[in-house]
Measured scan of single mutants.
Amino acid sequence: MTYKAILNGKTLKGETTTEAVDAATAEKVFKQYANDNGVDGEWTYDDATKTFTVTE
């Protein structure tokens, strides 16, 4: 399944996708990606669109 992350960081804005077996696995991948890029904020998840959003 393909999951998407939308990054609304102070220094990084954009989107990325990952293939994962479930939302929990995708969330770990996206949170690591955000952390590696200095983005730390509030996370939300929309199951209907399989989209995570982080906003700083």
Rank of each mutant, 00 (worst) to 15 (best):
D46Q: 04
N8V: 13
A26Q: 01
K4R: 12
T18A: 08
A5Y: 09
D47W: 08
V29S: 05
G38W: 08
T51A: 03
T25C: 08
A23Y: 13
A20L: 02
M1N: 14
D22S: 07
Q32E: 09
T49D: 05
L7S: 02
T17V: 10
E27K: 10
V29A: 08
E42P: 05
D40K: 13
V29L: 10
T16S: 08
L7M: 09
A24H: 09
K10M: 12
D46L: 03
Y33L: 08
D46A: 04
G9R: 02
T17D: 05
G9W: 06
E15S: 11
V54D: 01
K10P: 10
D36R: 08
L12C: 15
T11A: 10
N35R: 15
F52E: 00
T25M: 11
V21H: 13
D22N: 09
G9H: 06
Y45K: 00
E56D: 07
D47E: 14
A34W: 06
N37A: 12
Y45A: 01
L12N: 07
A20N: 03
A24G: 08
N35F: 15
A5Q: 03
E56P: 06
Y33R: 03
T44G: 06
A5L: 15
T51M: 03
V29C: 08
G41H: 03
E19H: 13
F30P: 00
G38P: 00
G14P: 03
A24Y: 09
G9I: 07
K10Q: 12
V54E: 01
E15L: 10
I6L: 06
D36Q: 11
T17H: 09
Y45V: 01
T55L: 06
A48M: 11
E19Y: 15
N35V: 14
F30V: 02
D22V: 02
E15V: 13
W43F: 05
K4Y: 14
A5E: 04
D22Q: 02
T11S: 11
A24D: 10
T53C: 09
V54H: 04
E15T: 13
D40W: 14
N37Q: 12
K31G: 02
T16F: 15
G9A: 06
T49L: 09
Q32Y: 05
K13C: 13
K31I: 08
D36L: 12
N37S: 08
M1R: 12
V21K: 13
